[in-house]
């Protein structure tokens, strides 16, 4: 075990997988940076968030590809190469820009397997930094994973901590299906223990981060960190909960969710997206249909409001679900009679 940041854990996973498998390559805007610059420094960037640093010096320009600003073609580059036998990792600088690459993502990558009657494989990974909390306003803060989760054919991961970041990304790269991999921008600096060597976290397997009988908190990505914060206060006042980090929204670990709901009967789902068609709504509908008989309180969904992400820091702070909102929601379900 080593203490590493989420950023470095992701970086390590790419280093290891590129070392292990010569078919793996990385492409995106400024993944190395410096191409065509006047300083002569070829790795002038290493990714705008530094996640791809060191890959160019190690693996060279053939496998670490700086692209023009052309998101649909960036994803297409990785998708097409993956259909032809390579394993492309496309970095979309901000998840919001998936909007420009939705054709290659949802009409192409997602559907080849099905439309070819199981003949095609498209082992592509699309990495997408997401999330609010950095005052980047409405076009640089969205979660986007709710839209991608709704598309059959795509797998969706969103790690909440460095160990999962490494293990889930390695799994994504080795997976034969297209994966859209969501990294929370505000988590890049988060440090934690990361297993050494080969480390894989399976898709569709939730992590139970805390065990308690009073309620079930289900969450993903950065909201897991907020749920952990809320739990500290709840525990201090004698309320203890299961905390489930789904880790992948597609596939979803339905068993882990139902097992916990059966035990507690009281559920809070915390999701950074606006409420409509959110992952919270999706999981809520699943629980309402498959776990109805266990429920002892109405579901509580803690989400952002139905509005774009505001710029002003006071507004953004209130917009993003907070530990205080999670705390209040848990107390509501626990006290419901």
């Amino acid at each position: 075990m080593a203490i590493k940041s989420y950023r470095d854990a992701l970086n390590e996973a790419m280093h290891r997988e590129m070392e292990r498998d010569a078919r793996v390559f990385v492409c995106g805007e400024d993944v190395s940076g410096g191409a065509g610059g006047t300083s002569g420094e070829r790795e002038a960037s290493g990714g705008i968030f530094g996640v791809t640093a060191g890959l160019l010096p190690r693996f060279g320009e053939g496998r670490v590809i700086d692209t023009p600003i052309s998101e649909n073609a960036i994803v297409g580059l990785a998708v097409g190469a993956s259909l032809a036998g390579k394993r492309g990792i496309a970095e979309i600088m901000f998840a919001d820009f998936l909007g420009l690459a939705l054709d290659q993502t949802m009409n192409q990558a997602a559907k080849f397997r099905y439309m070819s009657g199981g003949k095609a494989t498209c082992p592509v990974v699309i990495r997408a930094p997401y999330g609010a909390g950095m005052n980047m306003a409405a076009q640089h803060s969205q979660t986007m994973y709710q839209i991608i989760t709704s598309v059959p054919g795509l797998k969706v991961a969103m790690p909440s901590n460095p160990a999962d970041a490494k293990g889930l990304l390695a799994t994504a790269i080795r997976d034969d299906d297209p994966v859209v991999f969501f990294e929370h921008k505000a988590l890049y600096g988060r440090k934690g223990e990361v297993p050494d060597g080969d480390y894989l976290v399976p898709f569709g397997k939730a992590a139970i981060l805390n065990a308690g009988d009073d309620a079930t908190i289900i969450s993903m990505g950065r909201m897991v960190v907020f749920a952990e914060k809320a739990l500290e206060g709840l525990k201090a006042s004698g309320v203890n909960c299961d905390l489930i980090d789904i880790r992948t929204s597609s596939p979803l670990d339905e068993d882990a969710i139902l097992d916990s709901v059966e035990k507690t009967g009281r559920v809070v789902i915390v999701d950074e997206c606006p409420p409509r068609c959110s992952v919270a709504a999706d999981i809520g509908a699943f629980i309402a249909s498959k776990g109805f008989s266990s429920l002892r309180a109405p579901l509580e969904l803690v989400t952002a409001p139905h509005a774009p992400t505001p710029f002003a820091k006071e507004l953004e702070r209130a917009y993003v679900p907070s530990p205080a909102q999670i705390d209040a929601a848990v107390r509501r379900v626990v006290s419901y009679r």
């Binding site: 410096g34 191409a35 960037s45 023009p68």
Partner: peptide, 14 residues
């Protein structure tokens, strides 16, 4: 202005 973020226009504009 010669650059898009950290990439030169001479590289990115084919």
């Amino acid at each position: 202005n010669g650059y898009s973020e950290h990439t030169g226009a001479d590289y990115a504009v084919g």
